[in-house]
């Protein structure tokens, strides 16, 4: 699937959300879309899934079977979980028998079996999100588009998402995932696309690259914003602590001798000068004890 010179906006003469986007995803590949809130991640995903039409450019070679998991599942519908999933399976083109089997399989796999007779409107946010995940998988997708799939899920279900992604990839499908929670480390081997300033940049994969830890000193009232920005730029936050008794010497080192080589962005991107806590990738410990 390729996005060729894609421009997108939500109304005529409105501001461009995305400009001249050129990205491609081969069968068996996964890409994680990073970016701040409102950067255009969901727009990019919806263009890829076929929900939105580009104002300019085109999306080429989109697989016939697309599974899209929206950021918020529309639970305000008068159906039970089983009735809804069965209906969606039929809408996706499955026969009656195949639809029943697919619904039973995914309900069991995602822990939805006991919610079968429950109305969608009565589900918790996380359970509703699982229904959203299930409906996208009823028909084996050639392209699976997941918009913030970890949002609202419990720990067990969060662990299941990478498993499902790998299964789709193993079948030759492509997967596109957006993430602003720093869950990207769960998808090793995925490409990283960063949406910023209405454009999409690919960040070079860091698998096998040397990693560095950079300590920052940030005013207390700016911690949340800084953490969010760094995550959006693809960095992994290892820890946030309140005291600053151990002053970082990295900034001094950077001022005197230039940025440390091991900690620089590999793609020479404009955010290369951003203070780097740690690049995501293999061998980086999880963000235990992180805040914000």
């Amino acid at each position: 699937m390729r996005l060729e010179g894609v421009w997108a906006r939500y109304r005529r003469r409105g501001p461009w959300v995305l400009r001249a986007v050129e990205v491609a995803l081969a069968p068996g590949e996964a890409a994680v879309v990073l970016g701040r809130n409102g950067a255009g991640k969901s727009t990019l995903l919806q263009l890829a899934a076929g929900v939105l039409r580009p104002a300019r450019g085109r999306v080429a070679d989109r697989p016939a079977a697309v599974g899209w998991v929206p950021e918020r599942f529309p639970a305000d519908q008068p159906f039970t979980v089983t009735a809804y999933l069965t209906s969606m399976a039929r809408v996706a083109g499955l026969g009656a028998g195949a639809a029943d089997r697919a619904v039973a399989h995914w309900a069991d796999r995602l822990g939805l079996a006991r919610f079968g007779p429950v109305r969608l409107a009565q589900l918790s946010k996380g359970t509703a999100q699982k229904v959203g995940l299930a409906q996208a998988l009823l028909r084996p997708p050639g392209l699976l588009v997941l918009d913030e799939p970890w949002e609202g899920l419990d720990a067990a279900a969060r662990e299941l998402v990478p498993e499902l992604v790998e299964e789709v990839r193993a079948r030759g499908g492509s997967v596109l995932v957006s993430d602003h929670r720093g869950e990207t480390a769960r998808l090793p081997g995925a490409r990283l696309w960063t949406v910023a300033d209405s454009t999409v940049r690919e960040t070079a994969p860091t698998a096998g690259a040397a990693m560095s830890v950079v300590e920052l000193l940030v005013p207390a009232d700016r911690v949340t914003g800084t953490v969010a920005r760094l995550r959006a730029e693809g960095h992994q936050i290892l820890r946030v602590r309140a005291d600053s008794t151990d002053p970082p010497d990295v900034s001094r080192q950077g001022a005197d001798t230039g940025p440390p080589q091991a900690g620089r962005h590999g793609d020479g991107s404009p955010d290369g000068g951003s203070p780097e806590v740690s690049r995501r990738g293999a061998g980086v410990p999880s963000a235990a004890g992180e805040a914000g």
């Binding site: 919806q46 076929g50 929206p70 599942f73 305000d76 519908q77 969606m88 809408v91 028909r139």
Partner: peptide, 16 residues
């Protein structure tokens, strides 16, 4: 009566 997102989900499955 159908939520907007559900309409979009249907569009992804069967085409616009």
């Amino acid at each position: 009566v159908e939520p907007d997102v559900q309409r979009r989900l249907a569009g992804v499955l069967v085409g616009a």
